[in-house]
Simulated scan of single mutants.
Amino acid sequence: MAGGPGQNMQVLSALDGAKTQWYHFTAIVVADMGFFTDAYDLFCISLVTKLIGRVYYTVDGSPRPGSLPPHVSAAVNGVAFVGTLSGQLFFGWLGDRVGRKSVNGMTLLTMILCSVASGLSFGHSPACVMATLCFFRFWLGFGIGGDYPLSATIMSE
């Protein structure tokens, strides 16, 4: 251990007495924007799946708009959460080994690239488009999973 209880209290007292600086505001805004985009990326898909169903699963001549089959909807919605769990474990471990700030940059880059790629999912058939969407949403969830523990830890430190 680095020090005893007395030294720990001195560090905490110094942190409590420190003046608030521009860096503190910047760190708070960056972490809050990370949490906002995480939630947006994970939960906006429920609205998007309705649109995807109307584009790719509409039957010609039908009076009702198309909708995603239940198994496709579950896959598109759930794959990001599987990626989130995996990303938390991997990036949490990597952040402890390499350093939290540099690994947090990697998670943000992963999130940006996979968000754009999710919007540009490609394919010749609806099944192929859904497969590429699920692939990119998994990796988006992987980046989001890394952002959760790293942002919280960076803010608490």
Rank of each mutant, 00 (worst) to 15 (best):
1 M>N: 12
3 G>C: 04
6 G>T: 02
7 Q>S: 15
9 M>E: 13
10 Q>D: 09
12 L>R: 04
12 L>D: 04
12 L>V: 06
13 S>H: 01
13 S>G: 05
19 K>Y: 03
19 K>A: 13
20 T>D: 03
21 Q>N: 15
21 Q>W: 13
22 W>S: 13
26 T>Q: 15
27 A>Y: 09
27 A>M: 14
27 A>H: 10
28 I>R: 12
29 V>C: 12
30 V>Q: 08
30 V>M: 14
32 D>S: 13
34 G>A: 13
39 A>S: 10
40 Y>D: 07
41 D>H: 02
41 D>S: 09
42 L>Q: 10
43 F>C: 10
43 F>G: 11
44 C>G: 08
45 I>C: 11
45 I>S: 12
46 S>I: 01
49 T>D: 01
51 L>A: 07
52 I>M: 09
53 G>L: 03
54 R>D: 05
55 V>K: 13
55 V>H: 14
56 Y>P: 00
59 V>I: 15
59 V>L: 15
60 D>Y: 15
62 S>E: 04
64 R>F: 12
65 P>W: 02
65 P>C: 06
67 S>H: 10
68 L>N: 07
69 P>M: 05
69 P>H: 06
71 H>R: 09
71 H>N: 00
72 V>S: 02
72 V>L: 04
75 A>M: 15
75 A>S: 14
78 G>Y: 01
78 G>D: 01
79 V>I: 15
80 A>P: 06
81 F>L: 10
81 F>R: 06
82 V>W: 00
83 G>Q: 09
84 T>F: 15
84 T>A: 14
88 Q>W: 02
89 L>K: 04
91 F>K: 06
92 G>E: 04
92 G>M: 00
93 W>K: 11
95 G>H: 02
96 D>C: 06
96 D>P: 05
96 D>W: 00
100 R>K: 12
101 K>D: 02
101 K>G: 08
102 S>R: 15
104 N>D: 00
104 N>T: 06
105 G>L: 02
106 M>E: 02
106 M>D: 02
107 T>D: 06
107 T>H: 01
108 L>N: 00
109 L>E: 04
114 C>F: 14
114 C>D: 00
114 C>H: 05
115 S>A: 10
115 S>W: 05
116 V>L: 14
116 V>E: 11
118 S>L: 05
119 G>F: 07
119 G>A: 08
119 G>W: 03
120 L>R: 09
122 F>M: 13
123 G>C: 09
123 G>F: 02
123 G>P: 05
124 H>R: 12
126 P>S: 10
126 P>H: 09
127 A>R: 03
128 C>K: 10
128 C>A: 12
132 T>E: 05
132 T>P: 03
132 T>M: 00
133 L>F: 08
134 C>F: 01
134 C>M: 08
136 F>D: 00
137 R>T: 04
138 F>Q: 05
140 L>G: 02
140 L>S: 08
140 L>M: 11
140 L>R: 01
141 G>N: 07
142 F>G: 02
145 G>F: 02
146 G>M: 03
147 D>Y: 03
149 P>F: 05
150 L>T: 02
152 A>E: 00
152 A>G: 12
153 T>N: 08
153 T>S: 11
154 I>L: 15
155 M>P: 03
156 S>K: 11
157 E>R: 08
157 E>Q: 15
